[in-house]
Amino acid sequence: MPNDKLMKASQWKTRGFSSGSEPDNRTIKKWIENGTLAGRVINGTSYVYESEKYGVSSQISSIVAELVRESKVVSKKSFK
């Protein structure tokens, strides 16, 4: 996840949950702190890596993101 950008938890939760079903920011903070969700708590504010999808292991998300990045590099080279 070093190449991923962080996004505010409030923005992340609206992307992955239906309106009215979003988890509370305190819940997201707990998920980050216990390793359920990859992100950072900075000065009390929770941030989640933009590639994170709830219910998908952070390790799997990271591997898939890396494979996608590598495939883009290979695709660009094959068109030269």
Results as ranks from 00 to 15, higher is better:
Pro2Phe: 03
Pro2Ser: 14
Asn3Leu: 05
Asn3Phe: 01
Asp4Phe: 01
Leu6Pro: 00
Leu6Ile: 04
Met7Leu: 07
Ala9Gln: 02
Ser10Ile: 07
Ser10Asn: 10
Ser10Val: 08
Ser10Phe: 07
Gln11Leu: 14
Gln11Trp: 12
Lys13Gly: 01
Lys13Tyr: 08
Lys13His: 07
Thr14Cys: 08
Arg15Glu: 14
Arg15Thr: 14
Gly16Lys: 11
Phe17Tyr: 15
Ser19Glu: 13
Ser19Leu: 11
Ser19Ile: 09
Ser21Asn: 13
Ser21Gly: 07
Glu22Asn: 04
Glu22Ile: 02
Pro23Lys: 00
Pro23Asn: 03
Asp24Leu: 12
Asp24His: 15
Asn25Gly: 14
Asn25Ala: 11
Arg26Ile: 09
Ile28Trp: 04
Ile28Val: 14
Lys29Cys: 12
Lys30Gln: 13
Lys30Thr: 11
Lys30Pro: 00
Trp31Asn: 01
Ile32Arg: 00
Ile32Gln: 02
Ile32Val: 13
Asn34Ser: 06
Gly35Asp: 03
Gly35Ala: 02
Gly35Tyr: 05
Thr36Leu: 08
Leu37Gly: 03
Leu37Arg: 03
Leu37Glu: 04
Gly39Ser: 02
Arg40Lys: 15
Arg40Leu: 09
Thr45Val: 11
Thr45Asp: 10
Thr45Ala: 09
Ser46Val: 04
Ser46Glu: 02
Tyr47Asp: 05
Val48Phe: 09
Val48Ala: 08
Tyr49Arg: 02
Glu50Cys: 00
Glu50Asn: 14
Ser51Ala: 08
Glu52Ala: 01
Lys53His: 12
Lys53Thr: 13
Lys53Pro: 02
Tyr54Pro: 14
Tyr54Trp: 15
Tyr54Phe: 15
Tyr54Cys: 09
Val56Asp: 05
Val56Lys: 08
Val56Ala: 01
Val56Gln: 07
Gln59Ile: 14
Ile60Leu: 15
Ile60Cys: 06
Ile60Tyr: 15
Ile60Pro: 00
Ile60Ser: 11
Ser61Arg: 09
Val64Ala: 06
Val64Thr: 06
Val64Phe: 07
Ala65Phe: 02
Ala65Ile: 00
Ala65Pro: 04
Glu66Lys: 13
Leu67Asn: 12
Leu67Gly: 10
Leu67Met: 13
Glu70Asp: 08
Ser71Phe: 07
Ser71Gly: 03
Val73Glu: 12
Val73Gln: 10
Val74Ser: 05
Ser75Ile: 06
Ser75Lys: 15
Lys76Tyr: 08
Ser78Phe: 12
Ser78Gly: 14
Phe79Asn: 10
Phe79Gln: 15
Lys80Leu: 14
Lys80Ile: 10
Lys80Phe: 11
